[in-house]
């Protein structure tokens, strides 16, 4: 278990100090795939670097299985880091070493015998699906392949925790998907706790079970992925879940028309012909501006934008009608329709 307690990190620059993290507290359970999502500059990278003490927090503590990381000496820290490994956006492989050499590198640092390290590295090349790339150099590989080698390198010392710092941000969607699949496999088969730092909603949706939303150095929302993403409460969360206001929708409401967002939780609510039923039952005929369904954490979510004609009164009626159904949440959209 990783406990982050009241973590604050202040950077002192020439022109004053900057608080990158403000009083952040999170608990990450063993076996979790925990997403930490936020816009650039939200403090995500600083937070993940505080977990393995690449950055020393200004205040607060990080406990990994009860061990206070901040209290360890540099030497102790170096051995703990073999248990909490990391992969990066830029892969950061040693360009002058072969793939095999890269995977052997952390073992070499740990003083493992060469023959043993080589055996382990070859196994790991198999695990990440690149058994034929042992003697290849990183420059000869594609981005996705390089990240696979980086993952193999991170697994070499049998870690308990894998930190992923924007690990898929430099990859195309298809490759991202395959890397995420690999990470999920590793999480399931080896029971490694995974912490994923990202600015991409799709990454969190695809593999995380827990998520924390970081904005301006503070955690604004935290919890189960399905809950946080279906009913985002904070402004930052909404911005992430519905980017560009409404998935890029451009619409000018007519006079007397109100825009209503309807979110359906779960496949039952999403499959019922609710809007048609509403038109029949209370004679409000909404204009469907956008509709989408997606799967988050294994549950189906529907998200719909309706133009409700007939002024305040019919908006109120529509909201009452829709909200009486379980698993349906509505919200009037005012400012974010362009």
């Amino acid at each position: 278990m990783i406990e982050i307690k009241n973590l604050t990190k202040t950077f002192k620059g020439a022109d004053g100090s900057f608080e990158a993290l403000k009083n952040v507290s999170l608990t990450i359970n063993d076996g979790d795939i925990y997403g930490i999502i936020g816009m650039s500059g939200a403090g995500k990278s600083t937070l993940v670097r505080c977990i393995n003490m690449l950055e020393r927090p200004t205040e607060g503590k990080v406990l990994i299985d009860g061990v206070d990381m901040g209290a360890l000496s540099e030497k102790e820290l170096r051995s703990v880091r073999r248990n909490v490994t990391m992969i990066f956006q830029g892969f950061n492989l040693l360009m002058q070493r072969t793939c095999l050499g890269n995977i052997m590198f952390p073992l070499e640092l740990a003083g493992v015998k060469r023959a043993e390290a080589k055996k382990r590295a070859l196994e790991l090349l198999d695990t990440v699906g690149l058994p034929d790339k042992a003697e290849a150099y990183p420059a000869q590989l594609s981005g996705g392949q390089q990240q696979r080698i980086a993952i193999a390198r991170a697994l070499a010392t049998d870690p308990k925790v894998l930190l992923c710092d924007e690990a898929t941000s430099a990859l195309d969607p298809k490759t991202t998907h395959s890397i995420l699949e690999l990470i999920r496999d590793i999480n399931r088969k080896l029971g490694i706790t995974v912490i994923i730092i990202t600015h991409q909603m799709s990454v969190v949706e695809e593999i995380c079970n827990h998520v924390a939303i970081l904005d301006n150095g503070t955690v604004v929302e935290e919890g189960d992925v399905a809950t946080v993403f279906s009913t985002p409460k904070s402004k930052a969360a909404k911005r992430l879940v519905f980017p560009d206001g409404n998935d890029g929708l451009v619409y000018t409401p007519k006079e007397d028309e109100h825009i209503l967002r309807v979110v359906f939780h779960g496949s039952e609510a999403a499959s019922a012909p609710l809007i048609t039923q509403m038109a029949l039952d209370i004679s409000i005929t909404p204009n469907i501006l956008s509709a989408s369904t997606r799967t988050i954490g294994g549950k189906v979510f529907g998200n719909m934008l309706l133009g409700i004609p007939g002024g305040e009164e019919s908006l109120r009626l529509a909201v009452d009608y829709l909200e009486r159904v379980d698993d349906v949440i509505t919200e009037e959209v005012t400012s974010d329709v362009k």
């Binding site: 690449l54 073999r82 490994t85 990391m86 990066f88 830029g90 360009m95 590198f105 952390p106 010392t157």
Partner: peptide
Amino acid sequence: LNPNIIEAAQSMGAS
């Protein structure tokens, strides 16, 4: 040298 490579080595426990 890309400083991120040094950081990666530090993250692996290199002295």
